[in-house]
């Protein structure tokens, strides 16, 4: 099995593996990719709890993505292993999940009480310009909340991607700084050697 997996995984070459993970609705979304933009396909994704025991594992799809239902309301550590020594991890903290917990609590109270119903009787305009009358869109609080969360989640996805890409980017300052370090260290070595001589 491992052999088959290894064979179908595309060559990963020697690029750095990056990932990002975030909560979207009731699911946790994980995506792995290499610095040259290639997705970490068929990579093994393992989720650990705070005590470092495995919660679940899975394999990313052709887009390097993987999502799973929130397994627990606590800190989690998610690792992505793209094979050939490429692995990265992300710690998903309790705080990031907290919202979901309260929202699901709210959802249960809202459905049992069925008090707050938002009725939207206005007509909405569709893209082709024709007016479609929406007679009554009944959205209770919880449905609205999940809908908004999903929309916001979708909207910030590119931002999250950009952000983690920016974090992984090497700046010119790092390159020049590294060369400076090398010359500086050898300069010091030379200084002491020369003094001895």
């Amino acid at each position: 099995m491992a052999t088959i997996l290894l064979l179908i995984t595309p060559p990963a070459f020697a690029h750095k593996l990056n990932m990002f993970a975030y909560v979207e609705g009731n699911e946790i979304f994980v995506e792995g990719y290499f610095t040259d933009g290639k997705k970490a396909k068929n990579s093994e994704i393992i989720v650990f709890d705070a005590a470092n025991s495995e919660l679940l594992r899975g394999t990313s799809d052709a887009d390097g993505q993987f999502s799973f239902a929130i397994p627990q309301q606590n800190d989690m550590r998610i690792t992505v292993n793209a094979g050939m020594g490429h692995q990265t991890e992300y710690s998903l903290l309790k705080d990031e999940l907290q919202d979901e917990e309260t929202s699901s609590e709210l959802a249960t109270t809202a459905t049992t009480a069925t008090t707050a119903t938002v009725t939207d009787e206005k007509s909405t305009q569709t893209t082709d310009g024709s007016l479609t009358p929406v007679t009554a869109v009944n959205l209770d609080n919880s449905a609205l909340r999940t809908e908004v969360e999903r929309a916001v989640g979708k909207a910030i996805k590119p931002l999250m991607r950009e952000l983690s890409a920016m974090r992984a980017e090497k700046s010119l300052a790092d390159i020049i700084g590294g060369i400076g370090f090398i010359f500086g260290l050898f300069g010091i070595a030379m200084y002491f050697k020369a003094r001895k001589a």
Partner: peptide, 30 residues
């Protein structure tokens, strides 16, 4: 003592080499 400058220059080359990506087909290698 004479070796040190050469070693430091080559170390820099090695350090930076990993940033040079050579495109090959759909992918790239560094």
């Amino acid at each position: 003592l004479d070796d040190i400058p050469k070693v430091s220059v080559i170390t820099s080359v090695f350090f930076v080499a990993s940033l040079i990506h050579v495109p090959i087909g759909f992918s790239s290698v560094h």
